[in-house]
Amino acid sequence: CPAFTDDDLIEIVRAGTALRQVAVASRPRVPRDVATVLAAEGKQEAVAALAANDNADLSEAALGVALDRFSNAPEVIAALAYRQVLPLSVTERLVVLASEAVREHLITRHALAPETAIQFADFARERATIDLVDQARATDDLPAFVAGLNSRRVLTPSLLLRSLARGQIGLFEHALAELAGTPHHRAWLMVHDAGPLGLKAIYDRAGMPPRLFQAFRAGVDTWRALQAEGGDTGSAAFRQRMLERFLSQRPDAAREDLAYLLERLDRPADDGWRGAVSAA
Rank of each mutant, 00 (worst) to 15 (best):
C1D: 15
P2T: 08
D8T: 07
I10V: 14
E11P: 01
T17L: 06
L19I: 07
R20W: 12
R27P: 11
R27Q: 13
V30I: 10
V30L: 09
A35S: 15
V37I: 10
A40L: 08
A40V: 06
G42T: 03
E45C: 00
V47F: 05
A49E: 09
A52G: 15
D54H: 13
D54K: 12
N55K: 15
A56H: 13
L63A: 04
G64S: 07
V65Y: 09
R69M: 06
F70T: 01
S71Y: 15
N72I: 08
A79G: 07
T91H: 09
L94E: 08
L97K: 14
L97N: 08
S99V: 04
A101N: 04
A101R: 10
L106M: 01
L112V: 03
A113E: 04
P114T: 00
E115R: 06
A117K: 06
A117V: 02
I118W: 13
R127V: 15
R127F: 15
A128R: 15
I130A: 04
D140P: 05
A144R: 12
V146W: 08
A147H: 12
G148I: 02
N150L: 05
P157R: 10
L159Q: 09
L159S: 10
L164F: 11
R166Y: 01
G167C: 03
I169Y: 05
H174P: 01
L176Q: 02
A177V: 04
L179W: 11
T182D: 07
P196V: 00
K200R: 14
Y203F: 11
M208D: 04
Q214L: 07
A215H: 06
F216M: 01
R217K: 11
A218E: 07
W223M: 00
W223H: 12
A228L: 09
E229V: 00
T233P: 02
A236D: 01
F238M: 00
R241T: 03
R245E: 02
R250N: 10
A259E: 09
L262C: 03
A269M: 10
W273A: 00
G275H: 14
